[in-house]
Design a protein around this nucleic acid. Structure first.
Length: 106
DNA sequence: GAGATGACGGGCT
DNA sequence: AAGCCCGCCATCT
């Protein structure tokens, strides 16, 4: 475990149910000054999380408020269901209301 | 240490 | 609106 991974995981674990945050946001709150760029690294960490982890990785989405994964097919469906189960509503364009569900680290 | 990689972001077409 | 491209970061080879 690197220091960066530890910081990111600790932060995401604090994200409350029914809330979401962007990859860039995680990097920023985790203390990375180049958040917009470090976002990629955050994604890599989420990707490597094992099943049964205590890190709510599904609450981490892209800056547009949608489930990204760039270009996958069925992966997003699982994440979306997990979020909807917590009360997060998706708009017609498949996006969440950032103002309503966004988390800023409190 | 150099090159490749990708759950990203932002800007341009 | 949808897609493409480029830049940067942490990691892995």
């Amino acid at each position: 475990m690197t220091a960066f991974q530890t910081a990111v995981c600790r932060l995401v674990r604090r994200c409350p149910r029914g809330k979401v945050i962007s990859y860039g946001g995680v990097a920023a709150i985790a203390g990375n000054p180049r958040a917009a760029r470090a976002a990629r690294a955050v994604g890599a960490i989420m990707r490597d999380l094992p099943d049964g982890t205590d890190v709510p990785w599904w609450r981490v989405i892209n800056s547009r408020g949608e489930i990204s994964h760039r270009d996958i097919g069925h992966g997003p469906a699982i994440q979306r269901k997990l979020l909807e189960r917590e009360g997060v509503r998706f708009g017609g364009s498949g996006r969440v209301d950032w103002e309503r569900y966004g988390w800023s680290g409190e």
